[in-house]
């Protein structure tokens, strides 16, 4: 990696100030950024660690929803259990080392098209809380590695409403064990939400046809034979676009079945 300066502020305000420098870069758990730096594919002048900010840590249960600090690691979400599907998802990200360093804010800010968390945030209709505003998940994800965040904006917390029922089904890419296809299904007060990660060239998306079918009949049978259009699905060494489209159908049916 190239040389950089390192800052570890203890407040969001100090972090925002530190990120004001051009070419400064926020560092969450570093599970994507550090390997990128080691390969010399990025050269920030300053890394601003968010791990020393106590107000961004931990999970609070507000009854109808939970609020997860942006710097909360996957292992803490996994052991929380207030939303079982979310905890299960977090408990299957990476390996123990990743889960004890990687953070929910870092994952959502990166918006890797194969990451698990984006599907949970979108599937549960979460709200992304930043140092300046609150962004609904539906408005937040804007395509592969692209989000509504402005330069220097920090995810301080994620507010997640508790669903009536929810489940996440992940079909692992054999090498990386990221989601080749991951489907988060949630039955919420506002209706059924189906969020798909890993599959689309546009990143995480809601499968609206499935949601419509499930709003009429929340059962796997309601999705019989359904799959999204293969056009626009990712095609790579690990699966064609047709295979991914097919898997979206399979994983959605399994998630629905597991909800009931």
């Amino acid at each position: 990696m190239y040389n950089f300066d390192y800052e570890k502020p203890s407040t969001v305000a100090d972090a925002v100030a530190a990120l004001g420098d051009e070419d400064a870069q926020a560092l969450g758990g570093g599970q994507t950024l550090i390997p990128t730096l080691k390969q010399r594919l990025a050269s920030p002048t300053t890394l601003v660690s968010l791990s020393g900010i106590s107000e961004m840590q931990g999970i609070t249960d507000e009854g109808g929803s939970i609020t997860i600090g942006g710097a909360t690691v996957h292992a803490d979400v996994a052991s929380n259990g207030a939303i079982a599907a979310l905890s299960d998802l977090a408990g299957n990200i990476g390996d123990p080392a990743v889960r004890n360093r990687g953070t929910i804010g870092g994952s959502l800010a990166n918006n890797d098209p194969s990451a698990c968390y984006p599907s949970a945030a979108l599937g549960l209709g979460a709200t992304i809380v930043t140092n300046t505003r609150e962004i609904a998940a539906d408005d937040y994800f804007q395509g592969m590695f692209s989000t509504a965040l402005d330069e220097g904006e920090i995810i301080t917390a994620v507010k997640v409403p508790k669903p009536e029922a929810a489940n996440y089904q992940k079909f692992e890419q054999p090498a990386s064990r990221f989601a080749l296809v991951g489907v988060f299904v949630a039955k919420t007060s506002g209706g059924v939400r189906v969020a798909v990660t890993g599959a689309s060239e546009e990143g995480v998306f809601r499968w609206s046809e499935a949601e419509a079918a499930l709003n009429g009949n929340f059962s796997a049978d309601a999705l019989e034979g359904m799959a999204p259009d293969a056009d626009g699905m990712i095609a790579d060494l690990h699966g064609t676009s047709a295979y991914r489209a097919h898997l979206v159908g399979v994983m959605t049916r399994r998630a629905v079945a597991a909800c009931s």
Partner: peptide, 24 residues
């Protein structure tokens, strides 16, 4: 039998140059 595969594209670029794509 089930996982590993070293793959080059038609330009001779190594498609499986890390454990992200080479399945151990």
């Amino acid at each position: 039998a089930l996982l590993e595969n070293c793959v080059y594209d038609e330009n001779g670029q190594l498609m499986t140059g890390s454990y992200m794509d080479y399945a151990m």
